[in-house]
């Protein structure tokens, strides 16, 4: 016991864990304020926002999913070679050889699907709660960009297993991009690094999926969360649609 005590009273421990047990309100508030990971929260929260129906925690869930995707994605990268046909063989290696490889791939895939769904729901929630109204209009736009980035991540991730589904989804998608007036053909050429879905395209999608888009999304999320604090915290249901006037059609 005394060892434990001595440990918890040591300078190093107190430098690492600064508030002690969060039994008092002061410590509870310090816990949030002093912590780099928790400083996105305000020290005190409106109790109304604790209700599930206020935000449904959709933003938080999106963030968690992004975290899961980043982590599982990083691990998956260790067993992935962005080259034809090794990319496909690597999927098989994950399934048949790598410890928990298939589980990790499954988690990554389903999280990606869930993220698209949850981010979309988050957008709807914010809209119907009128949480985009000034001063939050900029953050709404950031949110729309984040939705696009999420879709972009999903789409670029699609090619990486190099299976039939991947190949044809990307073939169709890039042909769609080609239909864009003026820049279309150039866009497709740049995206694929050539005229057909091949080795170059796989590498480009890999770089987009693993570096560029996640970086952009991470920065976007940082701005998004920063704006949430700056604009006065999360705006849950305002619960005031129009007035309570009687409708007289």
């Amino acid at each position: 016991m005394s060892m434990l005590q001595r440990l918890t009273e040591s300078r190093v421990w107190r430098a690492l864990v600064r508030q002690g047990v969060s039994a008092t309100n002061r410590n509870r508030i310090l816990l949030v304020m002093d912590n780099v990971f928790l400083h996105l929260h305000s020290a005190k929260t409106r109790s109304r926002n604790l209700e599930l129906s206020s935000t449904y925690f959709l933003g938080a869930i999106s963030l968690v999913l992004f975290g899961i995707l980043t982590l599982s994605g990083l691990l998956l990268m260790l067993y992935y070679h962005p080259s034809v046909p090794q990319a496909y063989h690597d999927m098989k290696e994950l399934q048949f050889v790598v410890s928990n490889g298939l589980f990790l791939r499954n988690i990554h895939r389903w999280s990606a699907h869930a993220m698209v769904f949850i981010v979309f729901l988050h957008l709807l929630r914010v809209f119907y709660h009128k949480a985009y109204l000034p001063p939050r209009e900029f953050n709404w736009v950031v949110g729309v960009i984040l939705l696009l980035l999420t879709l972009g991540l999903s789409y670029t991730g699609y090619l990486l297993p190099w299976d039939q589904l991947a190949f044809w989804a990307v073939a169709v998608g890039t042909n769609m991009a080609e239909a864009t007036p003026l820049i279309g053909p150039k866009l497709r050429y740049l995206l694929l690094g050539g005229n057909a879905v091949g080795e170059n395209a796989l590498l480009r999608f890999y770089v987009l999926h693993c570096a560029l888009l996640p970086l952009a999304l991470a920065m976007g999320v940082a701005v998004h969360l920063w704006r949430v604090r700056k604009d006065g915290g999360v705006q849950g249901s305002s619960g005031r649609y129009g007035s309570r006037r009687q409708v007289k059609p």
């Binding site: 691990l75 260790l78 067993y79 290696e93 050889v97 790598v98 410890s99 928990n100 490889g101 990790l104």
Partner: peptide, 11 residues
């Protein structure tokens, strides 16, 4: 532990 296990190639 799992992470370590994952990082250890088996083939």
């Amino acid at each position: 532990a799992l992470g370590e296990n994952f990082l250890e190639p088996r083939a």
